[in-house]
């Protein structure tokens, strides 16, 4: 590293990486190409990349209309946005208190946060399911969103960030007449934008793609999130109409992949940053 490769090395690097890239990309390419093909061409058992007759319009139209795909996408957006907003509202003040305020019980509180970091959310699925069953919250937006309002990882991440904010800044705000709530929302929130962005990317990617929890708590079609929607689509036509199915898969991954391609660096930094801490 840090030293240019020789010409042979440079060529070899590209050969190996291109081969790897082909494997990584193959499912995406095949998905998109298939989504353009008519059923007749898909069912021909021979290797053909491009369609001879383009059926993109029909396939995507089918994907959007056979199931309420748009509804699923809107659900996904609403749920991920609601989760993220709640996460900031709930966890940012807590992180500030843990990082910057002195109070009795702070050590215990932080220890509990660290302990909770070790609990994967699959573990608490059964009791939360029973709880929601008891209070009649199953099969609702609330069931999809509420369990994730608390993010101990978010608390941990924000606390680490706030620890690096100089105390002087908070003291200056107190002298200037801000209360603790004012400090959280007027000073800490804007200061923490980079960390919140990284956490937001992590949170949105995780919850847009989450399948386990929605699968458990949601029963009615109008609450399906995109992953449930595409799985439902597959069941719906017995998984034989591959053109529309691939179109549906493309539609479901498109929003995140497009966002990723637009802001690659930010996404990779965000996922790396949270990955290193997680």
């Amino acid at each position: 590293m840090r030293r240019p490769l020789g010409p042979v090395g440079a060529v070899l690097r590209h050969v190996v990486l291109m081969a790897g890239a082909a494997v990584m990309l193959a499912p995406f390419v095949w998905m998109v190409l298939t989504s353009f093909k008519p059923q007749a061409e898909i069912l021909v058992a021979e290797l053909r990349l491009l369609p001879t007759r383009w059926a993109a319009a029909e396939n995507y139209a089918t994907a959007m209309t056979r199931v309420p795909m748009l509804r699923f996408l809107v659900n996904g957006a609403v749920v991920t946005a609601a989760i993220f907003v709640l996460q900031v509202l709930v966890n940012l003040p807590c992180a500030y208190a843990l990082a910057k305020l002195r109070f009795r019980g702070r050590g215990v509180m932080f220890a509990v946060v660290l302990l909770c970091l070790l609990i994967p959310h699959h573990v608490v699925a059964i009791p939360i399911y029973i709880l929601f069953h008891q209070v009649g919250l199953l099969d609702s937006y609330a069931a999809l969103v509420l369990p994730f309002a608390i993010s101990v990882f978010g608390i941990f991440l924000m606390r680490q960030f706030f620890m690096t904010v100089p105390n002087d800044l908070i003291d200056a705000a107190r002298i200037d007449g801000l209360g603790e709530f004012g400090i959280v929302w007027r000073i800490m929130l804007p200061t923490a934008v980079p960390a919140i962005t990284a956490f937001g990317i992590f949170s949105v990617v995780a919850h847009w793609n989450d399948y386990f929890w929605p699968l458990i708590v949601v029963g009615s079609e109008e609450l399906y999130t995109p992953p449930l929607g595409v799985a439902f689509f597959r069941l719906n036509d017995q998984g034989t109409e591959y053109g529309p199915l691939m179109a549906a898969a493309t539609i479901v991954i498109l929003p995140l992949v497009a966002a990723f391609l637009v802001a690659q660096r930010r996404f990779i930094e965000g996922i790396t940053f949270t990955g290193m801490k997680n």
């Binding site: 793609n209 992953p227 595409v230 898969a249 991954i253 995140l256 996922i271």
Partner: peptide, 11 residues
């Protein structure tokens, strides 16, 4: 990195 972002269930 693309597969990390893509919805696993769709993939």
């Amino acid at each position: 990195f693309l597969p990390v972002m893509a919805t696993l269930i769709a993939m």
